[in-house]
Deep mutational scan, measured.
Amino acid sequence: KTVEVNGVKYDFDNPEQAREMAERIAKSLGLQVRLEGDTFKIE
């Protein structure tokens, strides 16, 4: 899975870890996480 923030992509081998990281980043920035294919987009 991939986490994308402001056009910057971070790859994770563990999908659960990617989801947790995406949620943590989104919460700290006051944004939403949206799953698009294999990418968690933070917008």
Rank of each mutant, 00 (worst) to 15 (best):
F12H: 03
E20N: 08
P15V: 12
A26Q: 01
D38N: 12
K27E: 13
R34E: 05
R19L: 11
M21E: 12
E20H: 08
Y10Q: 05
V8P: 00
L35V: 13
K9I: 10
T39A: 06
Y10G: 00
S28Y: 14
I42T: 02
G30K: 05
L31V: 13
S28H: 14
I42Q: 00
P15G: 09
Q17I: 11
D38M: 06
F40M: 05
L29V: 03
K1H: 15
I25N: 00
R34Y: 11
N6F: 15
A26K: 01
Q17G: 06
V33A: 05
I25G: 00
Y10K: 04
E16P: 01
R24C: 13
A26M: 02
E16V: 10
G37F: 06
E43F: 13
E16M: 10
E4K: 06
S28I: 14
E4I: 14
L35T: 06
G30H: 06
E36F: 06
F40E: 01
P15M: 13
R19M: 08
K1Q: 09
T2A: 12
E20G: 05
V3S: 00
G37D: 07
V5A: 04
E16S: 09
K9Y: 09
M21A: 13
E20R: 10
K1E: 04
A26C: 08
G7Q: 03
I42C: 04
I25D: 01
E4H: 07
R24F: 12
E4N: 07
L29Y: 06
L31G: 13
V5R: 01
I25V: 10
E20C: 14
T39G: 06
L29C: 12
G37P: 02
T39Y: 05
G7C: 12
N14M: 07
F12E: 00
N14P: 03
A18V: 02
G30M: 04
L29G: 03
E16Y: 08
R19G: 03
L31N: 01
K27I: 12
V33Q: 02
L29P: 02
I25A: 04
N14F: 08
D38Y: 06
I42H: 01
G37H: 07
K41I: 15
K27C: 14
G30A: 04
E16R: 08
P15E: 14
F40Q: 00
A22N: 00
R34I: 13
V33S: 03
K9H: 07
T39E: 04
V8Q: 10
L29M: 11
K9L: 10
M21Y: 15
D38W: 04
F12C: 14
K9V: 11
A18K: 00
R34K: 12
D11A: 14
D38G: 12
L35S: 05
N6T: 02
S28W: 15
E23D: 11
T2F: 15
R19I: 07
E36W: 06
Q17W: 07
A26W: 03
Q32S: 14
E36R: 03
Y10C: 14
K9R: 15
L29E: 04
F12P: 02
K41Q: 05
K41C: 13
G30C: 12
G30L: 03
D11V: 15
A26L: 03
Q32I: 15
E23R: 07
N6P: 01
V5T: 02
E4Y: 12
A22Y: 03
D11I: 15
L29N: 03
T2I: 12
E23N: 10
A22H: 00
E43C: 14
L35H: 07
V33K: 00
F40G: 01
I25P: 00
G30P: 00
P15R: 07
G37S: 04
A22D: 00
I25M: 08
N6Q: 08
A18Y: 02
